[in-house]
Amino acid sequence: MPPSKVPPSVRQRRLGTELRRLREQAGLSVTRAGELHGTQQSRISNIESGGYPVSADRVRALARLYGCGDDALIEALTSMTGGRTRGWWEEYREILPAGALDLAELEHHAQSMRIASAIHIPGLLQTLEHARALFRDVVPPLSPPEVEHLVSHRIKRQAVLHGAQSTPLSALVHEAALRMGFGGPEVARGQLEHLLSASEYPRVDLRVIPFGTGSYPGSGAGIVYFVAHVERLDSVQVDGDRSEFIDTEPQLIKYRAVMDRLETSALAPEASRDLIRRIARSI
């Protein structure tokens, strides 16, 4: 099977990265790994770049070759095989940037998520009107069809919070985000009312970081921490001047610590709801 012509998703690239890390930990070069596995060096390289579809059996074979004895890790890696997941987000392939599709795919596969946001309401908790107001404010301006594509994609992502298999979400939202007032008073009030409703979802833990709690670690960037089946496969999206996905162990350790620290600054769920209600009444 030739390498896929479709650019690899962030999950496919992550699978390749983890196989490369296992090979390097085993002290094997790409050439030697190919020899031992009975395949071409170029195929090993393409697998590690995420550009070559790899089967679960091949992942297990490579893991054995590299001396990996972590069965949980191996099974988690095999679950990432089979090429790009044909999820609903694929309908946006020629419409939205690849990063938007990657985000939806990571949300779909996450065991749970931890989000921290200083300026914006997390996308998974935005109303349609709030999202539309945000995208209409983009510079340079977007066309009406571009705005609607982005809005529909954002709203469809929220399906992970509903149903019997909903994904647990811990959301830390700074008071500043609650007071930004995007879209005007009516939209802003509707957004806060939606947050109150979402905070009652069975698997959503919404907490507010109030003004006066001091510094905000992470330089105010939006953070999404995706918890995987095994800790080594966790991922982070940092949304600052540009969005990026992070998966190195030192960075994962850093952002786990950042999220832990932010949680200590947040109000309890009921106190958070009280603050949201007060702000909504003041609009």
Rank of each mutant, 00 (worst) to 15 (best):
S215V: 13
R136K: 14
S152H: 13
R154H: 02
T167C: 10
S117P: 00
L19T: 02
V138Q: 09
E231V: 08
L178N: 01
V258Q: 08
A131E: 04
R32M: 12
L192I: 07
L96E: 08
S112M: 13
R60S: 07
K156G: 01
E48Q: 06
S45G: 13
R58S: 03
L206S: 00
H120V: 04
V236M: 09
W88I: 03
A72E: 15
S49I: 05
E186M: 12
L73D: 06
P217V: 15
Q158W: 05
Y52S: 07
E18L: 08
L169P: 02
P97D: 09
S49A: 14
R11W: 11
V208W: 10
A268Q: 12
G214C: 14
I44M: 15
Q41V: 07
T213F: 04
Y92Q: 13
Q158F: 05
Q41R: 15
F135L: 06
E90L: 15
Y225A: 03
L178F: 03
P122Y: 08
D241R: 15
R86P: 05
Y255P: 01
E91F: 05
A198R: 05
S117A: 08
L103M: 11
G218T: 11
S199R: 10
T167N: 03
F135A: 04
S42Y: 10
L150P: 00
I276K: 04
R32C: 00
Q41H: 11
G181S: 08
R84N: 02
G67V: 10
I44T: 04
Y201C: 00
S166K: 03
G123K: 02
P210V: 13
E231P: 00
G16W: 13
R242V: 07
R232I: 11
M259C: 09
V230T: 11
T17M: 05
P217F: 14
V230R: 09
L161F: 02
Q158S: 01
I253Q: 10
A268I: 03
L128S: 05
E91Y: 09
S265L: 15
A56D: 11
E48V: 02
A159Q: 09
T248L: 12
V6L: 11
A100M: 14
R58N: 02
S282C: 06
V173A: 03
I44G: 01
L73C: 08
E186L: 15
A271S: 15
S219D: 13
R14G: 00
S29D: 07
E244V: 13
A104F: 08
A221Q: 10
S166T: 06
H229P: 00
Y92R: 06
L96D: 12
Q251F: 12
R207Y: 07
L36H: 13
R189E: 12
P145Y: 11
L15D: 04
E244Y: 11
F135S: 01
D102E: 10
E48D: 11
L178Q: 02
P3E: 14
V6F: 04
L233A: 03
I279M: 03
G220H: 02
S152G: 01
T78A: 07
L206W: 03
R242H: 06
W88A: 08
T264P: 01
P140N: 03
S265R: 14
R32K: 09
G67Y: 15
I119A: 09
E186W: 09
Q40V: 12
Q237P: 00
D260W: 10
E186C: 01
L161H: 01
P217K: 10
P202T: 09
S152I: 06
F182S: 02
L142N: 08
A228D: 15
A100N: 13
E24C: 01
A133E: 04
S265W: 11
